[in-house]
Each structure stands twice: as structure tokens, then as C-alpha cells.
Amino acid sequence: MKSRLLPALGGAVVVGTLALTGCSSSADAAQDDRTIRFATLPVSDDPNAETPVEEIAALLAEETGYEVEITDVPNYSAVIEAIRSGHEDIGIMSAFPTAMGVNTGEVDPLVAWSGDDSPVARCVVLADSPIRTLEDISPEDTVAFADPASSSGYFMPVYMLDRAGLTQDEDYEVLFSGGHDRSQLALKSGQVDVTCTAAMFTDMAGQGSPYFPFEAGETRVIGESPAMPVSLAVLGNQKMSEDKRAALLEALPVVFSAANADALGTYGEALPEGVEPMIEPGPETFQTLVDIAAVAGVDISDLE
């Protein structure tokens, strides 16, 4: 992991100066309490999309008056663990990892945004496939999913298929391809009969994207998943100071807003238009996500 420190705007004390004067442990603690430490990782399904952490840190520093330390982490589990252990104050997460974190009972959802009405995932077949609807899928057919930890590449599609009366490994065979792009290659080569992937990728037909390497008209959509009940959330360390928590609760809805959409990049794209943030939502907000994950055979209701 790598960390960077961005001073709060408006004349914050420089950390290096304190070190030169031989600061005490109490001074270290005071300085730490004036620093918002947040863990980031991409929230987009597109792995080529860059996360604008410097821009977000600058906005957060300006809005709170705190210094902001950014830590880039490799995966959702690392974010949750860093917040649980107190190494980080906040982490910005997509829906299912947020539900996992909340259900530990050891991190708090500070702010969350519900999803819009758009489908999260779509299942597609080749244009000449005899499969016309989800109900046409048979036990002899193989369905490709990106990864067992993927919201759009597994959780939501399996939920979609379940609602159509189809149970994995009974009513269809499962293949985990290892990535959205690999699922499409498997469909293109005839290794699988159906692929379920992020809805955004199916809109890329004819654009030469490796995440949907088909021309318009080469594939057909046979099913769409429901919308995501939660699109994005900020998890917080339960042991942060009350002053820091209050500053974050006031600043986060301002920073993560339509007014900053360009600066927020992938985070801005993940925020649904016209949706007001939920401040300190309760665990019930995430129960639907727990239920959806359970359909996929993943119990996140009592994560240890």
C-alpha cells in the first residue's frame, strides 16, 4: 500500500516541521486527530478507469479543514480491515462490500446513496442462439460469470436468474471466467452459451472494447437484473473523534455531489442523479444486499 498526505487548505501545520522540533506522543496523537485517513480503490467496473484520489482529497481537505491522507489498497477486504483496525478513518465502497463491512458491526456507514433505476447486469447470448429468454436456459447450458466476488458479474446476475426460477449448478452450469472481458471471449469462442456481465459493457458493442468485443447485432440481451438498492457508501472507523466524525458527516454529502462530478471521476459516475444521500443509515438499509448475496451462496450477514 502507498500513502500520500495532502495538507488542509488555509495554512495547516506541516508534519515535517513537527518532526524536527521533537514532538511528543501526545502531539503525534493531536496531529493524527487532525488528519482524515481514507482508503481508496476503484469503484468502476472498468479496470482502466482511474480513481481521482488527489482531487477528492483536495475537496475533502477544503471542506473540513483537516489534512487528508490517502492510502491506495488492493481490495475491498483490505479497506474494511483497515477501518476496523483503526488504521484508516473512512473508506469509499460499492454496495456489496459495504454490506459486508456493516454486518461486522465494527464499522459504521456514515453516508450512503441508493441506486438509480438502471439494471446492474445483463445476460447475453450470440444473435443466432436458440436461447430467447432466461427461461430457455437448460441444465446443458453454461453461463459465464466474471468473478464470485463481483456485484455485476455474479451477485446480481445470479439473483436475476434465481428470480426466473433457475438455480445454479442445477438448472445451468457455472463457469467463472476470471474477468468481464474473459467472459465475452468465452461467449465469442463458443465455450459458453450465456454470459452475464455489467450492463455498461453491453452498451459498448461496436466500439472495439475488449470488455464487449462484439459488433452491434452480434449478440442479444435475454435478461436484465434489478437496480442496485445501494450504489455507493462511505464507511467509517467507530473510534474516530466526535469532532472528526461531525466534520465528515457535514462534508461528505457536499464533496460527493453533482457540483463536483467532473473532479470525482469514477466516483461521480457511481453517484445516481437526483438521489439525496442517507446520513448514518441503519443496517436495514443493506439487508436487501445481504439477501441477494445469500441467493448467490454467500453469507455476509455474520461476517467474522
Rank of each mutant, 00 (worst) to 15 (best):
K2I: 13
L5E: 02
L6Q: 03
L9D: 13
V13Y: 09
V14I: 10
A19C: 08
T21R: 14
T21D: 13
S24P: 01
S24A: 10
S24V: 06
S26K: 15
A27Q: 12
A29G: 08
A30P: 02
Q31F: 14
I36W: 07
F38K: 06
F38A: 08
V43W: 00
V43F: 05
V43Q: 02
D45M: 08
D46W: 03
N48L: 12
N48V: 12
E50L: 15
P52K: 08
E54M: 14
A61I: 04
E62W: 07
Y66S: 05
E67D: 15
I70F: 08
A78R: 12
A78C: 11
I80N: 02
E81L: 14
A82F: 08
I83D: 01
R84K: 15
M93G: 04
S94M: 11
F96C: 03
T98Y: 03
T98K: 01
G101L: 09
E106N: 14
D108Y: 08
P109E: 06
W113I: 05
D117E: 11
P119Y: 01
C123A: 15
L126A: 08
A127C: 04
D128S: 13
S129Q: 00
R132K: 15
T133E: 12
T133K: 11
S138H: 10
A146S: 15
A146G: 11
S150A: 06
S151I: 09
G153C: 11
Y159R: 05
M160N: 06
G165Q: 07
T167Q: 14
Q168Y: 12
Q168R: 15
F176P: 02
S177Q: 04
G178D: 05
R182A: 14
Q184G: 03
L185Y: 14
L187M: 06
L187Y: 04
Q191M: 14
V192Q: 02
V192P: 01
D193P: 01
V194R: 00
V194T: 03
M200Q: 14
F201N: 01
D203W: 09
A205N: 11
Q207C: 10
S209I: 05
Y211Q: 06
P213V: 08
P213W: 02
A216S: 14
E218R: 00
R220V: 04
R220Y: 03
V221W: 01
I222Y: 00
P226Q: 10
A227K: 10
M228Y: 02
M228P: 04
P229A: 03
V230Q: 01
V234G: 03
V234M: 09
L235V: 14
L235P: 00
N237W: 01
K239N: 15
S241V: 12
K244I: 07
A246P: 07
A246C: 06
L248F: 10
P253K: 09
F256C: 12
A259I: 05
A261C: 05
G265M: 05
T266V: 15
Y267Q: 13
Y267I: 12
G268Y: 03
G268I: 07
E269L: 08
E269F: 09
L271R: 00
V275S: 09
I279E: 10
E280F: 09
E284G: 11
T285W: 07
D291K: 10
V295Q: 11
A296K: 00
S301M: 04
